[in-house]
Write a protein that binds this DNA or RNA. Structure first.
Length: 643
RNA sequence: GCGCCCGUAGCUCAAUUGGAUAGAGCAUCCGCCUUCUAAGCGGAAUGUUCCGGGUUCGAAUCCCGGCGGGCGCACCA
């Protein structure tokens, strides 16, 4: 059990004894400012209001009942009613020794498995076919992967999903454009060629209305199984998949082909979804909107005074949807939901079938949700992880913040249709959009190449490795070239990933090479360096670490490292609570800071006694174990023995 | 216009979700390599937390009103 939950339990019990169990909920316990305490319990202030008694009196009462003698020094009351807890050094040492001895637990950095394993779908990366992956895919891939890794590590059944954009409107443009190109589809294309076809097609689509119309028709043809369209589709898709695999492999993203279920996968389910949705939700709506089509956009014209040309006054109150319903509007089949209005304050639809009969991303997302939560997957020819039912308990999307409204509408639709109920547990599925900001250049504007194009991932990652190589060559010229190349790759890629993960995902972040490859501060290279230093000690030690030791925490630095190591599991829980890997980055950076201070002031190999040497080696080993789990298992970065 | 997100040191970012004297790194200044990787460590200096109200024991955090920036708002994803 983590320190935090142990203390929470103790305080909860004390509060129950003092004031009755109805007050004993989750008392607030948090790691405190080291100036005052290792941990503090702030429950007294909150309780004082409920009890109508002064907070310090409440705190005194809690202290009278709390049992902490085995864990910490006598707790102190401070300020308005903080209860400060200083963990006893002998207790810390004992806990650490236990962790060190239990090799299975040590390999997990002391992180326990979740009490119950849930099925969690993580939907991330989601590149488009026929386009080279670019910086726009970077955050989703990196964040989603870190979240998926962390969920899996604590023991959940994680279903990774790469929702590839391979069957939507944009593909129609490609088909239409291809007609004029006379492509040789017998030969494997290059992703760079496809990328330029895509750009040409997009350009024509924008400037040529006739082309645009035919492109939309091509989508319908594709979605209804036209063989010529499908042949081209396969041709493009194969190369696109190869390209994505290459990028994922280079970046260390744990998405395999088995995880790929793009728009096309749901194609034949789309009419079904629309039909089921029409059955699950009322048709035509409530109140004054019943039955008629074009209910929100009557073809009325207003004169300069805001009067209809027939003389009636346009309703000044916005029309409000009170309950979700399906209706046809302007030829398109739509879901209308409470709380969504467009810029004219008219109800905003979620379009599930276009006027021309084609489906778009909302329909696909709904189909995917139905598939992930409800659909039975017992067909024997399906491959893992499709070979068993998912019945997801939680579904997480890492896509950029601009899609927040889209997901909010899709989730509301699912809930209105009661499709969010897990068929096995009968509990509501947790639907989460984990939005993130943009990547900006040093000038604070969207990260683009000089010519204004989006930066290709392949080039960006190549540059990261090149730059890292130059740094390594400068810092460690003795390193043989072969070793240096491995280091450069790990450092370069690690720096890019860490730069993304270390910052709160909701904010935009600036991509500045010199900053993310910096050797000091909260960067990938610094953390990797700390790990490499530890490994170096063990190489020099020339002995296998003992399996059991007495931990001695006689200096403040040793105690600080010990305290930090034991906080790890609480941080991992917080990451999963908020889906914010930057908590983990901040923690690991602090751990490295504590370790470096220890490293400076406490000789390990030349410690004053063999016992102290063993103890310090154990501290090094435990720090390395936490770094390995945090950096490698959870964040997906490579670690180095030497750099 | 409506909605969502953001605004913290010169710069880039934290702040365990309402807790104590708001913390790091960079840049600036001072000190430390004949001892385990100095890609490091120790120290100094740096703040009207965009502004104004409110809520309360206590606000960067919550509420209201401004200002500034980003994004979204019918057949693209």
């Amino acid at each position: 059990m983590s320190i935090e939950s142990l203390l929470r339990e103790r305080f909860s019990r004390a509060i129950g004894l003092a004031f009755g169990s109805e007050f004993a909920g989750e008392p607030m316990v948090k790691a405190g400012d080291p100036k005052f305490a290792d941990y503090q319990c702030n429950a007294a202030m909150a309780l004082s209001r409920q009890l109508g008694r002064p907070p310090r009196e409440v705190a005194t009462e809690i202290l009278r009942h709390v049992q902490l003698a085995d864990v910490c020094e006598p707790a102190q009351i401070a300020g308005p009613g903080f209860i400060n807890v200083r963990i006893s050094t002998t207790w810390l040492a004992r806990r650490l020794a236990e962790l060190f001895t239990d090799s299975a637990s040590k390999a997990r950095g002391g992180v326990a498995r979740a009490a119950q394993s849930a099925t969690v779908v993580v939907d991330y990366a989601g590149p488009n076919i026929a386009k080279e992956m670019h910086v726009g895919h970077l955050r989703s891939s990196i964040l989603g992967d870190a979240i998926a890794r962390t969920l899996a590590f604590v023991g959940h059944r994680v279903v990774r999903q790469n929702h590839v954009g391979d069957f939507g409107t944009q593909f129609g443009m490609l088909i239409r454009h291809a007609k004029d190109l006379k492509l040789d589809t017998g030969e494997m294309p290059q992703i760079s060629d496809l990328d330029s076809y895509y750009k040409q097609a997009a350009q024509r689509d924008k400037s040529d209305p006739q082309f645009a119309v035919e492109a939309r028709q091509a989508v319908v043809a594709l979605q209804s199984g036209d063989s010529e369209a499908l042949r081209l589709w396969h041709w493009i898709r194969d190369e696109s998949r190869r390209h994505c695999r290459e990028i994922f492999e280079f970046l260390g993203i744990t998405l395999s082909e088995a995880d790929e279920r793009g728009e096309s996968f749901y194609a034949d389910r789309l009419p079904l979804v629309v039909q089921r949705l029409s059955e699950a939700l009322p048709m035509g709506g409530d109140g004054p909107y019943t039955g008629t089509s074009d209910i929100f956009h009557p073809q009325r014209q207003l004169d300069a005074n805001g009067l209809n040309v027939d003389g009636t006054v346009e309703a000044s109150e916005p029309q409000i949807v009170t309950k979700a319903f399906v209706a046809e509007s302007q030829g398109a089949l739509c879901v209308f939901l409470p709380g969504f209005v467009d810029k004219d304050k008219k109800p905003l639809p979620l379009i599930i079938r276009k006027g021309d009969g084609a489906y778009l991303y909302a329909t696909t997302d709904l189909a995917a949700l139905y598939f992930r939560i409800i659909e039975e997957k017992t067909t024997p020819d399906q491959t893992a992880p499709l070979d068993q039912n998912w019945h997801a308990d939680r579904i997480i999307y890492t896509t950029d913040a601009r899609q927040a409204q889209h997901f909010s509408m899709v989730f509301d639709t699912i809930r209105a249709a009661h499709w969010d109920i897990n068929p096995v547990t009968k509990l509501p599925v947790v639907l989460q959009h984990a939005p993130f900001g943009s990547i900006l250049g040093e000038d604070g504007k969207p990260f683009k190449t000089r010519s204004g194009e989006s930066v290709k991932l392949r080039e960006l990652l190549y540059e990261a490795v090149q730059r890292a190589d130059a740094v390594v060559e400068k810092k460690n010229p003795e390193l043989p070239i072969a070793a240096r190349q491995l280091v450069a790759r790990a450092v370069g890629i690690g720096a890019v990933k860490y730069a993304d993960l270390r910052q709160d995902r909701i904010t935009d972040y600036q991509f500045v090479w010199d900053r993310l490859l910096a050797l000091d501060g909260n960067t990938g290279p610094y953390l990797q360096y700390t790990f490499a230093r530890i490994r170096s000690i063990f190489r020099k030690a020339g002995e296998v670490p003992a399996t059991a030791v007495t931990i001695m925490l006689e200096t403040p630095q040793e105690r600080d490292v010990a305290r930090r190591i034991l906080q790890f599991s609480d941080v991992v829980l917080a990451v999963l609570q908020d889906l914010k890997p930057h908590y983990l980055c901040t923690y690991l950076y602090d751990l490295c800071g504590s370790f470096s201070a220890f490293y400076e002031s406490c000789p390990v190999l030349k410690a004053a006694s063999p016992e102290l040497r063993q103890s310090r080696l154990a501290l090094c080993d435990l720090t390395a174990a936490v770094l390995k789990v945090g950096l490698s298992d959870l964040l997906g970065m490579e670690l180095l023995e030497e750099m």
